[in-house]
Design a binder for these strands. Structure first.
Lengths: 98, 98
DNA sequence: CCTATAGTTCGATTCGATTCGAACCGTATC
DNA sequence: GATACGGTTCGAATCGAATCGAACTATAGG
């Protein structure tokens, strides 16, 4: 398993953010994490096949939407609200509020 | 030719906005129209084939990004900044400012 | 060590968006 | 009417993203 690579705040790109958010599954993930809670992958997408879910985790992480942290066997996800609000104020709220 | 159908302000959906903006050509169109100017299709995308351009115009219109107006042979485009700012404050600025 | 669990990676497939050419529609101009 | 111009529509081709199964890595627990 590779290291979990996240873009830093300055490295966030709006094009990447738009691409990451333009998918119903990933949009649902964002809304699930909207309250700031830190959840595991299985908690968020229990019904999806592992490989498909893993694909979406990578997109969300590499495009700067979530921060991921490994603890034991689990992968915990947290919305990067502070970073996203700082770089693109309003975008996350628009997505979450629908 | 069909009538130009635009969603009204209340009908704007963030999913549709994200889908419309998640494309380099359409992103360029939005940035070209950022200053509020009203331009014709040919002025904005002169190099693209007509059919491809027409496809993008439709996405931008039906997803609520631009308002289109026919005058003679020309189609004029205008960014729906007021509507988008009202429904999804910050999104358009984030996209335009990069 | 053995087994179960969580997630990744790979290759193949599927599916939708993009692209284009060609034919068409409407308008302007002669 | 004839021609040119600006866009649309259609069908076909292309291309990339999403999906999945299978094999794999790594950790937890017995």
């Amino acid at each position: 398993m590779e290291e979990l690579e996240h873009p830093d705040r300055a490295g966030l790109r709006i094009e990447a953010v738009l691409a990451a958010l333009d998918h119903p599954v990933r949009l649902r993930v964002v809304r699930t994490l909207a309250d700031g809670e830190e959840l595991t992958c299985r908690q968020i997408l229990p019904e999806m096949t592992k490989s498909s879910a893993s694909h979406h985790w990578r997109v969300l992480r590499e495009n700067g939407i979530v921060e991921q942290r490994r603890q034991g066997r689990n992968l915990y996800m947290r919305l990067r609200r502070a970073d996203l609000d700082a770089r693109f104020p309003g975008v996350l709220d628009a997505v979450i509020d629908g």
